[in-house]
């Protein structure tokens, strides 16, 4: 996987990481939580957020000359426990 862009913004929102994985364009949402008092990082990504990311991917593509076969939305959940980090990568959330 190769990172193409980071923290890309437009008037509709922001994409944390834009990457390329073979033929697929991957839009990644990175969620960080320092405690679980408000739920886990993974479950804080709701379906509405995912569909917004999907829309943002289309926005980003309009600024690009090249095309991709598919578009994928991934979530990376980063949690910090007692100075240690845990990282989970969910591929293909939609």
């Amino acid at each position: 996987m190769e990172i193409l862009d980071r923290n890309w913004r437009c008037r509709h929102g922001e994409i944390d990481i834009i990457a390329e994985d073979g033929p697929a364009l991957v839009v990644v949402e990175v969620k960080t939580r320092s405690s679980r008092s408000h739920g886990t990082a993974l479950e804080s990504v709701r379906p509405a957020k995912l569909s917004r990311l999907r829309m943002l991917a289309a926005q980003w593509l309009t600024t690009q000359p090249r095309t991709f076969q598919t578009v994928r939305v991934d979530v990376i959940a980063l949690e910090r426990f007692a100075g240690d980090y845990s990282l989970r990568h969910v591929r293909g959330a939609i």
């Binding site: 886990t40 993974l42 479950e43 990504v45 995912l50 979530v75 969910v90 959330a93």
Partner: peptide, 12 residues
């Protein structure tokens, strides 16, 4: 029958 599948994907 009640089946539960705990698998990969977004939490929910």
């Amino acid at each position: 029958e009640v089946e539960a599948d705990v698998g990969n994907g977004l939490a929910g």
